[in-house]
Design a protein around this nucleic acid. Structure first.
Lengths: 333, 333
DNA sequence: CTGAAAGCGCTAACAA
DNA sequence: TTGTTAGCGCTTTCAG
């Protein structure tokens, strides 16, 4: 009934060697005489033997799999990171256990624990909020963890990001240079550090430098979704803003279309600049001006960093900032 | 040095019971006296014991993880399916090992093999082409496999889909009803059964029924990408088409914008209808008319079916077709 | 260069 | 209701 698995033991018998030797050739241990290796390989091939990774994991205490916690695969920002993660994971022979968390603190803790129970060798965490409970799990666990595209204000855990303060500052500056005085800042919850601490700071810095008074009424907190963007247009308009810096591409395109459907001329009457430069920015009409950031690379570098940590290599810098830029496309003058 | 793991053995000792008993309470086996259970639970809590899933997997020959092979997480069609898969997987206490295949036959085989080596309890495969080599692996393996949003013309392996023939036929009919005579059919490679066999058949059926001659020059094969859509507009226009049925949303929006940027009035001068009803269809301006299909549910149902197979339950129908529809939004008259 | 043997942490008969 | 005892398939000393 059971799929009669053929084991290392079968191979050993057939090849008239010990299982230790078979193990050695399977693992590329050089201490095997070429002739022996050849013989074993031949039997492995003939028997179609496939090593059982679970047994291997138990014996070696390494599973060559890493856990990836993602708010939502369906969000292009995160899936772009995930792609980078998976590609370098594959490159280093790791597999990925992917788990959606919905940015839900409780689910994050739960998911992290099942990943640790599965003995993943490392974890990549994406999420805008490092809650106390998830932080507690992080510190308790000895498993290496890296944040990708997610900041930890305490800088306790390793992370790969861009400089959100500077990036938003520069984006805001662009809008100021275009003679906008009332610039809306629309993004997710300010209780998320990336918004409330980093982006907001950049926004304020730019205003201050231009001697524009900061007006809380121009700050909008909402969800990262297309619908939310469409919905919030009326309020942004009512606030008298002539431009907006937005923290998420779907949100930004929602706002763009909200304005467009309201017969506002973009960019002449209203300018927008978004944050993530995902492929959506090229899809909208007009195309979205944006902060550019290497999404794929953020994921890739995070995974690379994690491989080093799993390898117990010395890490010179736990917090990696990748370069960003600004592209002006159709939503800015 | 090693994170001194605390094992079932430690718990047994501390609670003065046998490891078998601990195992029982951990696994919710009812044959444990309440008092004993309580005592064990207390120790588990005090010692912060976490069962090792790898050891459990080796002993029980079940890993409670399933492999998911996806062409590209970054593609909204597939990530929508993946979301459905992950949600019901979580519901049934399974984890997902996610692997990108790039629709590359060789990589698919490779990835499938490493998933099987990791002893996944089942596999969900997404991909438009069941190559002979991947089919060979499918048949060789005793592990249950379900296709999600991907057809197997041989109907050998279980799958969850919509009826692509009928759906495209109906989409084409819609365009015919709007008085279009020259309707382009633009999609991915015709060597993929979903295109060359199913969708093309639906397209031809609709034409035949309307007594419109089939013209191969109106059939366009390209990549599933935004860029490809933009690029192919000139050829579609040159062919004299007044409308198009498109097999992928990104591709469709590329075509839409290609036409729009060429000052073609949509939908008055050119109509489009796409296939997947992903959230992109609401983002474009005008919004895309589309075949509707329950992407999330396709993934969810596929995973549900897989749980039944892993459970060795009797399956009445290996091939599940979910309902589809047609929504006319802004790209059709 | 190769083999013997002791686990890795847990499940699952089988007894008691 | 509980304990004993074999393994699951492989890695890894330790000898030789």
């Amino acid at each position: 009934m059971d799929k009669q698995t053929i084991t290392i033991y079968d191979v050993a018998r057939e090849a008239s060697v010990s299982m230790a030797t078979v193990s050695r050739v399977v693992n590329g241990n050089p201490n095997v005489k070429p002739a022996t290796r050849k013989k074993v390989l031949e039997v492995i091939d003939r028997l179609d033997y496939r090593p059982n990774a679970v047994a291997r994991g138990l014996a070696s205490k390494k599973t060559t799999t890493v856990g990836v916690i993602i708010p939502d695969v369906t969000n292009i920002y995160f899936s772009s990171l995930a792609r980078g993660i998976d590609d370098v994971a594959t490159m280093y022979k790791y597999n990925i256990i992917l788990a959606n968390s919905d940015e839900n603190g409780q689910k994050e803790v739960q998911v992290l624990n099942t990943l640790l129970a599965k003995q993943v060798d490392g974890v990549i965490f994406m999420g805008n909020q490092i809650t106390d409970s998830i932080r507690a799990e992080f510190t308790r666990s000895k498993t290496p963890i890296v944040l990708a595209g997610s900041v930890d204000p305490e800088a306790q855990v390793a992370s790969v990001n861009i400089d959100y303060v500077e990036a938003i500052e520069e984006a805001t500056n662009t809008l100021i240079r275009h003679d906008n005085q009332k610039i809306a800042f629309v993004t997710g919850s300010l209780s998320e550090p990336i918004n409330g601490q980093y982006r907001l700071k950049g926004y304020k810095k730019a205003l201050a430098q231009a001697k524009i008074a900061y007006d809380p009424n121009l700050v909008f907190e909402t969800e990262y979704s297309y619908k939310a963007g469409e919905a919030i247009w009326d309020r942004v308009k009512a606030a008298g803003a002539t431009a907006a810096v937005i923290g998420d591409d779907e949100l930004a395109i929602g706002l763009l279309n909200g304005a467009g459907d309201d017969d506002v001329n973009i960019p002449n009457d209203f300018e927008l600049i978004t944050s993530n430069d995902s492929k959506l920015t090229e899809i909208s009409r007009p195309k979205m001006s944006s902060i550019t950031q290497p999404l794929y690379d953020i994921g890739a570098v995070a995974m690379r960093l994690l491989t080093k940590m799993m390898n117990k290599e010395e890490i010179d810098n736990q917090t990696i900032l990748l370069p960003y830029g600004i592209v002006e496309r159709g939503t800015t003058k």
